[in-house]
Design a protein around this nucleic acid. Structure first.
Length: 333
DNA sequence: CAACCGACCTGTTCGC
DNA sequence: TGCGAACAGGTCGGTT
């Protein structure tokens, strides 16, 4: 589920609650939640350790311990972290619990069981996570880091060949962007998701760089987008109110009024305005086949329903589900 | 290297 | 009312 802004919010909410806490025991109800699927080894590694810092890298929550190690937690689609009193009622979707010496629990709840928790080495000198090893993916730079400049961005783009949307989702290119913010950044930059990277001119690259930072920055300020199962320990974000492309199929584009269109790119739903995010001539031919196939697929879906109404239904259902998730979490300090 | 596919999971919605 | 298919914000490994 969560992308960079949501994970950042979770880390910030967790920090004041768990820094200083000592882990005295571990409960694992779904062993595969652990990246090495070995609960006894995990318990032995963390028992007695004190938490000294909480941060984020890409979409990972990083919990640093008072030895040379850190826990990384990837929430994937439906993971949630919250702190409750040990006596708080159990929940069938809680997969892993860190029990603290002060009577509280850090609980990891994850309906779809995609989330993963790993133990990683930490550089004793710098306190930074060692970003290597069998379970650690190659991660690109942090887009909101001040060190991530337009020059840096240009250098990364050089030599890349594919299309924009898959590139933005590639965590080894830039870390932390997911499906929502990829669509929003491309809309903001007025770039078509199927635009070829090699066709970008300097002005296009500048707009893309700026839109990525603007969208992610605002999303962090707004505590992320609360959609479906995502909610943070200190409550919902509000970025969902500002999304203008994602899940807006059929609704009028906020810039030109033409309907937002939906395509599947790399297996992911992709939302854009085909007027504001036009393809240059070079790309049109290459992309024509993709668009034709999408049109055929749409026609194939008999009983063509109203896409805007459908999107609205989807959002309402999502809000309901989120309310249930929130009620379940019921986090305390 | 780039893109696509099925896996991994569960819950919800929609068409029939 | 019930049933199956499609879909959901992420990533991985194996193919093409």
């Amino acid at each position: 589920m969560p992308e960079l802004p949501e994970v950042e919010t979770v880390a910030r909410d967790l920090r004041p609650r768990i820094v200083g806490a000592t882990i005295v025991a571990v409960r694992v109800s779904w062993p595969r939640t652990l990246r090495d699927a070995d609960p006894p080894a995990f318990a032995a590694a963390v028992a007695g350790r004190r938490i000294v810092a909480v941060g984020r890298r890409a979409k990972l929550v990083v919990i640093e311990l008072d030895d040379d190690r850190a826990l990384t937690i990837h929430l994937k689609m439906t993971g949630q972290l919250f702190v409750v009193d040990r006596a708080a009622p159990d929940d069938p979707y809680v997969r892993l619990v860190l029990e603290f010496g002060d009577g509280r629990d850090l609980r990891f709840r994850d309906i779809r069981k995609f989330g993963r928790v790993g133990v990683h080495a930490r550089d004793a000198q710098t306190g930074r996570l060692v970003e290597s090893g069998p379970f650690f993916p190659r991660l690109g730079p942090e887009p909101l880091d001040p060190a991530f400049t337009i020059a840096h961005f240009r250098r990364l783009m050089r030599g890349r060949r594919g299309r924009l949307k898959p590139l933005l989702l590639d965590q080894s290119f830039i870390a932390g962007i997911g499906n929502i913010y990829a669509d929003e950044a491309l809309f903001e930059a007025r770039l078509h998701p199927l635009r070829s990277v090699s066709s970008l001119r300097p002005a296009d690259e500048r707009r893309l760089y700026r839109s990525i930072r603007t969208i992610l920055g605002e999303a962090v300020e707004r505590r992320g987008s609360s959609i479906d199962d995502y909610t943070a320990p200190d409550g919902d974000g509000s970025m969902q109110e500002r999304l203008v492309a994602y899940q807006r199929t059929g609704e009028p584009c906020v810039r030109c009024g033409r309907p937002i269109r939906r395509l599947v790119v790399g297996g992911r739903a992709t939302h854009f305005c085909s007027w504001c995010q036009r393809l240059p001539a070079i790309d049109r031919i290459a992309v024509a086949a993709v668009l034709r196939r999408a049109a055929e697929a749409r026609r194939g879906l008999a009983g063509h329903r109203d896409p805007a109404a459908s999107a609205e239904r989807t959002r309402r259902a999502a809000a309901t589900r989120r309310a249930q998730a929130r009620a379940t979490v019921g986090s305390i300090h």
